[in-house]
Design a protein around this nucleic acid. Sequence first.
RNA 1: CGGGGCGUAGCUCAGCUUGGUUAGAGCGUCGCGUUUGGGACGCGAAGGCCGGACGUUCGAAUCGUCUCGCCCCGACCA
Length: 521
Amino acid sequence: MRVNLAITAPKCDCKARYPRAMRQGSPRFVGETWPVMSDEPAQAVVKEIPPKAADLSAWYTAVCLKAELVSYSPVRGCVVLRPYGFALWEKLQQHLDARFKQTGHENAYFPLFIPANLLQREAEHVEGFAPEVAWVTRGGGEELTEPLAIRPTSEAIIGVMYAKWIQSYRDLPILINQWANVVRWEKATRPFLRTMEFLWQEGHTAHASAEEARKETLTILDLYRDFAENVAGVPVYAGPKSAGERFPGAVETFAIEALMPDGKALQSGTSHDLGQNFAKAYDIKFVDSDSAIKFVHTTSWGVSWRMLGGLIMVHGDDRGLRLPPKMAPLEAVLIPIVRTNDDRAVAACQATAERLAAAGFRVRLDARDEQPGWKYSEWDVRGVPVRIEIGPRDVESGTAVLVRRDRQKGDPEQRRSVALRDVESNLRELLDDVAASLYRDAKRFLDEHTIATSDRAEFFELCRNRAGMVDIAWCNRPECEAHVKAATTATSRVLRPLEGSAVCTACGEPAQVRAYFAQSY
RNA sequence: CGGGGCGUAGCUCAGCUUGGUUAGAGCGUCGCGUUUGGGACGCGAAGGCCGGACGUUCGAAUCGUCUCGCCCCGACCA
């Protein structure tokens, strides 16, 4: 089998090199820090990527651009998802889609345009989305008699269709998902985290009973949690949202919330129990087994490419992306070390790449005519979990050097030499270890930045300082949350049951739940 | 939508205060050669409606007004 493993498009806009003066005296071999700038702790490791700890926002934007995930476009607030970024999105799609199928869902596709009157049927829904809906008012050179909304979400159009499709309890449940783009008119945008047009999936289901709808909502919530933790390596808190954080039109909203390095929470997936609100608005009725005409119970749930933004921030370091292996478009990149009159390493890499591909690994050979060190840096920026180096010494000894992206230079565990005959098992083991290690680090960060307090002043201070997930006993009253938000800009992220009795840390009223409070993206 | 910053070569920027010949640098790109285990080096070459519009002026990258876009910090959201 001859697979196309070599890269063919070496174009990249991140090749800037350090000025010569800065390079002089730099070590030529691994195991030492490069560049030598020990008296300048804030110095970027990779040119054009500022240190992550110094300015998360600047670091984030630079990484998204330099890793060639996205590129800004001439369209305000909209990014181009470049091939590497799209490949990352595809990995998310593959994993989630497989889970949706396993739980009985089917994919379908609904129109991008939503007539004004449809969108307006559910009062809370339209009110909630009004500020961010884009409208088409002209088409074919003529003013439209009825403006068309560009979907901010698809409850409306799907509700109308469900009303047509559903007659009997035998038609239920309907379990449909769509992969789509949606538009929300945003004022400030950032790659993945908030763009005017974004990619997501939205699931829409209809059920005969409230219990079944609630079960579906929770099934998806757990599916999202499982994906975030076990595939993306991002630990999350999952649970119900407060009334103030609820989806417009929902009876109850559940979410998974991740914690970013700057102490702000990122809502990474939502699952809504819509009750009969949309069924009533869109007249989705069925005849039940007892011959009574009833409204269905619906749910909706979504994960967007925002999840990718969270993964980037949680795992990335000063050298760029660090992708969890299951999400990485490439699990390993092979870099031959060629010498003058000795390009045996290229053939060895090609053969190894083919073997690995045959074994099911996503690998690529980088045989471009560039310095090896230059290639290391470039693939570091892109976060490929493992690099495989084969040089003349390896050709002689039948070995390869496996270098893991999650470890820093100088770490003795960063690189290991393995026999080529065992490369598959070694790579498998290494990838698993990288995945576990990335998750472990992220989990430790979340744990260390989840702070329980019952002291009112401390609570407000922690919220203001973006200390992380601030865990309190809470009254679950909208007025209380509004007050906390006004004072600290933090809101409740997700709730969980309260054990025993307590007073609300924020206001002193009787507590009903425990809540994680944090500022959020 | 408020507050702040920035748009000059593919990238990072200098030049602008005090308008004046062909607008510069480093890196990248292209060609040739030497190199290649953490961002190589030499020689040669190409590359710019100075974000856009209007204005002031004999003359605008430079001054003024407007506009578009990007970044950062807030308010709203996934």
